[in-house]
Nucleic acid binder design. Structure first.
Lengths: 216, 216
DNA sequence: TGTACATCAGTGAACGCGCGTTCACTGATGTAC
DNA sequence: TGTACATCAGTGAACGCGCGTTCACTGATGTAC
């Protein structure tokens, strides 16, 4: 039943966007009285939270599935496929993507429950970095570490990876979402004619930036 | 009067975000009957459009002001300051930034009027690229052009700039907004402890990526 | 200088709408003896 | 096998709210003669 509520809510999300999501509309579509939803959901905010968690999980599953198919020693390919999977999911579920990575929903503050699922996606990339480090596929990163990265993240999430590489990886990570958001939200329409091509070409640059070499 | 409406609407925007912006609330704050607003504004959508146009203009003015102070032959500095001005404006007006670069407002489709003001910001960066090309501050970009960039943009907006550089510049551009959005929307809280430092360090990488050399 | 008229900013009531949430309730299903 | 009771999914009316937009109107200001 909770499943059905989430499914219907997802459908509504695709039509109206998160700020317009309404419990009454969900109930109506299921064929229940509005009050009946409160047996399964504490409030509208709780439903939004559930949708966010489900979004991260869904995205992460998709990313993991596609990344896992690439040969383990093809580090560039693994990074590339990770990013492509993100873009693919975003294009398939634009409103859901916007709920996760777009503007915060007014009046809604995401509770801490949403942090853990969010990291599952990034963990895929962290693993690629880790494997690239272990197998010597990471070029020497020049310069100094920025010192701007959380110590805990460095010690746990990116354990063993050169801090200078971590700097670059977080930048690349934000860039991927920047590209996807720009494309989805219409900021590339007047400058880029072929989104697929542009995204792939950009990723080559980002992978170079991170320093994964071309041996793989 | 139109000025006052926009000012009050901006204040509301900062409190409620764009999807919650209401004509009645604006009228209430000004001390008018709701219907009186219709003498100045065609509809709620028209007000949103006006806010978007004003946002791009305000942002562009800020960016132009800060970029223009940098020595003309300091190409890296000009790029850096452009990006810093974007971030500064975004942090000062997060809801206004979200209206421009975040998720589209549900039920609202931005009319073509908003395109021109939007390009004013990007034009600052295009000018830096142009000057860097003219003064030989751009390193040779490796590889092949992606071929994904609009021909018209290449011929007009980026006239004279190596297409391979344009590829990289658009990527860098999207990356800047990716960084800013990630920071503003809370996706860096667990990984980056010093936003200023991280942003500046990232920009050095992006400027290297674009290929502006360090002579300036 | 004084009168008739047009302009136009702003009013206030009303329209029809949808929303989140609460509350006392019904009525079927399942369990205990 | 049959009865008494508890559980619990779902109902329906109501609460108080805010919204965008329309419409006939008032009343002050400015203009023309």
């Amino acid at each position: 039943m909770m499943e059905e509520i989430l499914d219907v809510a997802l459908g509504q999300l695709a039509l109206t966007g998160a700020p317009g999501l309404s419990l009454r509309a969900v109930a109506r579509e299921i064929g229940l009285a509005p009050s009946a939803l409160y047996r399964y959901v504490d409030s509208r905010d709780a439903l939004l939270t559930a949708l966010i968690v489900r979004g991260y999980d869904d995205l992460a599953s998709g990313v993991e599935a596609r990344e896992s198919v690439v040969a383990r020693d093809d580090l560039r390919g693994r990074f590339l496929e990770t990013a492509r999977a993100i873009r693919g999911w975003a294009r398939a579920h634009p409103h859901h993507y916007a709920l996760l990575y777009g503007s915060p929903v007014p009046g809604y503050a995401a509770p801490p429950d949403t942090i853990a699922p969010a990291t599952r996606v990034a963990a895929v990339m962290a693993r690629v970095l880790h494997d690239a480090t272990a197998s010597g596929h990471l070029g020497e990163a020049g310069g100094e570490p920025s010192g701007a990265v959380e110590g805990e993240a460095l010690a746990d999430f990116f354990a063993g990876v050169d801090p200078r590489t971590v700097d670059r990886a977080i930048l690349a990570w934000a860039s991927i979402y920047g590209l996807v958001s720009f494309e989805l939200f219409g900021h590339l329409v007047s400058s880029v004619s072929n989104g697929d091509l542009f995204f792939d070409a950009s990723l080559e640059h980002l992978i170079d930036l991170v320093g994964i070499d071309r041996r793989g």
